[in-house]
């Protein structure tokens, strides 16, 4: 069991951690999900038939675990929203006072815009941006990880870039407007 873990850790761990971090943008949650991914890998490695590469298999597990996390998060959020009626007229929306992830400190202004604008994309669009450009998977590999067709990868990637572009431009405009005397 340990050798399997070591094998995957040595080959893919930092890529795996990065992919999950850019998806959830929370270090502790990332560590938690990474552990779950390894548990799944260790449990089901014997049944791995080698139809895809180890890397795409590992990332498809990571993708499923991340989706599970988002589903749980959404359920939790909905429960809170229903309980407190924050979204209604009576409620008041407050911005989070939590500090931004430590990694975002390293980003320049333009990268910060991109980092935040990624949240304007859907989860599918976000993960294709991470897989294709941050992790630098090929279209074929991305399609294998996501279980999509190549054309779906291409269209989702195109839409994701468009949304990101629009968001970055509008943020830039707002900043320019604020800078004007």
């Amino acid at each position: 069991m340990k050798t399997t873990f070591e094998h995957f850790y040595d080959k893919y761990h930092q890529d795996l951690f990065q992919f999950i971090f850019y998806m959830v943008k929370d270090k502790e949650q990332t560590e938690d999900i990474v552990q779950d991914v390894y548990i799944k890998v260790l449990k089901s490695y014997e049944s791995f038939k080698g139809e895809s590469t180890e890397k795409t298999w590992l990332f498809s597990i990571a993708r499923h675990e991340t989706f599970d996390y988002f589903r749980k998060l959404k359920r939790k959020r909905n429960r809170f929203l229903e309980f407190f009626n924050w979204g209604g007229e009576e409620g008041e929306q407050l911005k989070s006072t939590l500090a931004e992830p430590e990694q975002s400190v390293l980003l320049n202004d333009q990268m910060k815009h991109i980092y935040h604008c990624m949240e304007h994309c859907s989860i599918d669009q976000k993960q294709i941006l991470i897989l294709r450009y941050i992790q630098e998977f090929t279209i074929q590999e991305s399609a294998e990880i996501l279980g999509w067709s190549i054309s779906k990868v291409k269209t989702t990637q195109h839409r994701a870039l468009k949304i990101l572009q629009q968001c970055v431009q509008s943020t830039k405009r707002e900043e320019d407007d604020d800078d004007k005397p």
């Binding site: 850790y9 761990h13 930092q14 850019y22 560590e31 990474v34 390894y38 980003l107 870039l161």
Partner: peptide, 27 residues
Amino acid sequence: LINQLKNMPKIEDQQSKEQLYQKIQRK
């Protein structure tokens, strides 16, 4: 934009392999 995305900082896990394995074992 694509270039910016490709140049996004690399995120690294600070914990050691052994630490992670122990956590996984416990879980």
